[in-house]
């Protein structure tokens, strides 16, 4: 099964809508609740990062009997130092975004903690692509 979502940069009022739709689908498929929890955390953080840090992006979710593959591609500033970005507490979020309670620098670590495979490809000035895989087992 393939599901596709569009994400707009700056559109915080719809942040999380892809995650909640995927959650619903996985529930209907009777996927183990502990696996659904991990998928939801990883996808939410990736989705919010497009909203908070990029201009626009798309999410492609591929669900099979063995697991879920999430591909997030955005047009945005890219990430100059991925190692730094992956560090807990590192954030370049604006003051406004921080006041909303985002910008703790915990999103990428949360994705890493909750996925079986997690890779970031990024080109500064162009955009960022995430590949997240979680097995159902």
């Amino acid at each position: 099964m393939h599901l596709e979502f569009k994400v707009e940069g700056g559109d915080f009022s719809n942040a999380g809508s892809a995650s909640s739709q995927i959650k619903r689908v996985l529930k209907q498929l009777n996927i183990d609740p502990s696996v659904i929890k991990r998928v939801v955390v990883a996808l939410y953080e990736a989705e919010v990062n497009i909203v908070a840090h990029a201009y626009r992006g798309r999410i492609d979710a591929y669900i099979s009997s063995s697991g879920i593959v999430l591909k997030l591609e955005d047009e945005g500033p890219g990430i100059p130092d991925v190692g730094k970005a992956m560090t807990k507490g590192f954030s370049t979020a604006s003051k406004e975004v921080r006041e909303m309670g985002f910008g703790a620098g915990m999103g990428l670590p949360n994705i890493s903690d909750n996925s079986d495979v997690f890779t970031i490809d990024t080109i500064v000035g162009k955009g960022t692509s995430l590949n997240i895989e979680i097995k159902f087992r």
Partner: peptide, 19 residues
């Protein structure tokens, strides 16, 4: 902090916040 709650809160908990 939303990503703190995302990463560490558990099902069935009550969330206390000023957001």
């Amino acid at each position: 902090l939303l990503s703190d709650v995302m990463g560490h809160a558990r099902e069935g908990q009550i969330w206390i916040t000023l957001q």
